[in-house]
Amino acid sequence: MFDYQFFIEVLVGGLLSGVMYSLVAIGFVLIYKTSGVLNFAQGAMLLFAALTFVSLVERGVPFWLGAGVTLVIMVALGVAVERVVLRPLVNQSPMALFMATLGLSYVIEGAAQLLWGTQVHGLDLGIKDIPFEVGGVLISQFDLFAAAIAGTLVTAFALFFRYTRTGLAFRAVADDQFAALAVGLRLSRVWAAVWTAAGVVALVAGLLWGARLGVQFSLSLVVLKALPVLVLGGFDSVAGAIVGGLLIGAIEKLAEVYVGPLLGGGIEAWAAYVVALAFLLLRPSGLFGQKLVERV
């Protein structure tokens, strides 16, 4: 007989995991939306932020001061990336920019280890991961906390994009770079702001993922979880990143539990990519992505 309670437990667990994927995906979306660059260094930025924060705290820096200092460092990193990597590559092909971010990810990972060492660290945000029961279903306190943070972040970005001048500039650049330039927007300044925002997202995601996995080198691998989310939700939609994350989280967990045993198990990593591939064939721009229409 089908165990509905277990099904709901797997589904809820998957949705909450999906929120964590969305957090990473949002960092990609911000940069892609405004500059058309798929920033492969987002995972390395996440690692750098978490490692910097935890290293400061372990050296006796108070929690909030550590977060503030890390934030300043991430802002500096964002501005430096714009100056050193992006600006010299203006008008280069998207592939050249993608390769630049790929190289950048190695540089950031290496710099993180050079600065802070190779040891792994625990990260305690003060949120216990002890489950509580609702109708026989166990729900993780930590995952709920992460979902609340993600929700707050998305709301903040939505308000920022809609009601601030910088947010408006982001949207203008995202809509048409040449038109934005024509009306006097400074592209370099917008990109620096975008990379800074991506740095902030990296810090938030880094702290949450770091608390979950420990702060270690493999933290940068969480980008692999974001890629199918982006394909599903669309590369240029924050809402798409959220919905895509929820869908991918739920699908991979249900697939692992109910289909995995038929295929020998261990399918959740590639099951997400199967779904993404299918979506790519049916709807290349994703659920919420902007459809690209070009006159040939």
Binding site: G14, E256, V257
Partner: peptide
Amino acid sequence: IEVPHPGNEQQSQWL
């Protein structure tokens, strides 16, 4: 039960 590499997500396996 297999955990796919790198193993940073194990909710379904532990359920």
